[in-house]
């Protein structure tokens, strides 16, 4: 097997898109070959600019991502795009439709787009997103754009995966109490206001400004950038704002801190997955279903059942 992996690794590092695509599938599926390739490729990652784009369904994330990629390409940067859409909680199937808005990028060999289904993860990404980003980074992409699932108020996983998080807002998203709420409004490093040709854009911008004026003293004030992605208006400014944020991270030494924090989170998440898998192996699915039945019929409570399953402290 290692001869085959050597060959694939060499092809991938030589820019072979099919080799990259196959490795991404292994990584996404948690295949042992994926873990081996990641082990080999990881030392080569850490060079790409990782930018997340999040926002509610229909805010224009895919269109903004498409435009963002075009500006990066015009500036001579190669681009990887990871676009996440939700999996069905019932059938685990998914419709991954982000490419519909990215059709014009297909002929450009400097852009590689991969669609991922969330596969049960709840934070707006999928469990494998970080690893997919690592591989695109090692492959040599200068910029990796991560487009999240259409996010509501609490899908903030992107903030710990990307270096810079863009929140894509639109006019008329509700009254200004929405902008006061905790959660997704807090994670934005750059606030984009898309569809800025619609009425209500001034109100949205002033609500966001008011929000920022109340923010605790931070050394980075998220810029507000209105844009009309369908007309390619304001996108240069958005890319510039992300550049400025990155420069700020470098100047303040935050970039290295954030990288350690990201690594820590990924290690903990992976370890948690392994511990849980071991528990299921050792103590068994059968015992778990007995306990579930007991809790459902009220003969015990959930906390006692968990303790009975894995032991108390």
């Amino acid at each position: 097997m290692s001869g085959r992996l050597d060959e694939l690794q060499a092809r991938l590092l030589d820019g072979d898109r099919r080799a990259l695509s196959r490795v991404l599938s292994w990584v996404e599926n948690g295949d042992a070959r994926g873990r081996e390739m990641l082990r080999r490729l990881y030392p080569r990652s850490g060079r790409a600019r990782i930018i997340g784009l999040t926002g509610s369904p229909g805010a224009g994330k895919s269109t903004v991502t498409n435009e963002f990629a075009k500006v990066c390409r015009a500036r001579g940067l190669s681009v990887g795009i990871v676009a996440v859409d939700p999996s069905s909680p019932y059938t685990q199937g998914a419709i991954l439709g982000d490419r519909v808005r990215m059709a014009e990028l297909h002929a450009d060999r400097g852009v590689f787009i991969r669609s991922l289904a969330s596969r049960g993860a709840l934070g707006g990404l999928s469990a494998a997103t970080q690893d997919v980003v690592h591989v695109l980074d090692a492959y040599g992409k200068d910029v990796v754009l991560i487009e999240t699932v259409g996010a509501g108020q609490d899908e903030v996983e992107i903030a710990s995966t990307a270096q810079t998080t863009v929140l894509v807002n639109t006019p008329n998203m509700g009254d200004d109490v929405q902008t006061l709420k905790a959660g997704i409004m807090e994670i934005a490093d750059v606030l984009a206001v898309n569809k800025a040709d619609l009425p209500g854009v001034d109100r949205m911008v002033s609500a966001l400004k008011a929000l920022l004026s109340l923010a605790p003293d931070r050394d980075w004030q998220p810029p507000i950038t209105p844009l009309v992605a369908t007309k390619s208006e304001g996108v240069e400014q958005l890319v510039d704002a992300c550049e400025a944020h990155h420069a700020h991270l470098v100047e303040t030494g935050r970039l290295a801190d954030a990288e350690s924090a990201r690594a820590r989170q990924q290690i903990v998440a992976l370890a948690r997955g392994r511990v849980l898998a071991n528990l299921l192996n050792e103590i068994g699915e059968e015992r778990l279903s007995q306990l579930s039945t007991a809790v459902a019929s009220r003969s015990t409570d959930p906390h006692s059942a968990a303790e009975a399953w894995v032991g108390g402290e």
Partner: peptide, 28 residues
């Protein structure tokens, strides 16, 4: 196919042969 539990990449209308082949490659 989604309801049958599959992951469906939908590319939309007016696709050229190169667009389709490239999407198939990138999406494996």
């Amino acid at each position: 196919l989604r309801d049958a539990g599959m992951e469906v990449i939908y590319t939309g209308i007016r696709q050229t042969p190169d667009m389709i082949a490239e999407a198939a490659l990138q999406e494996d």
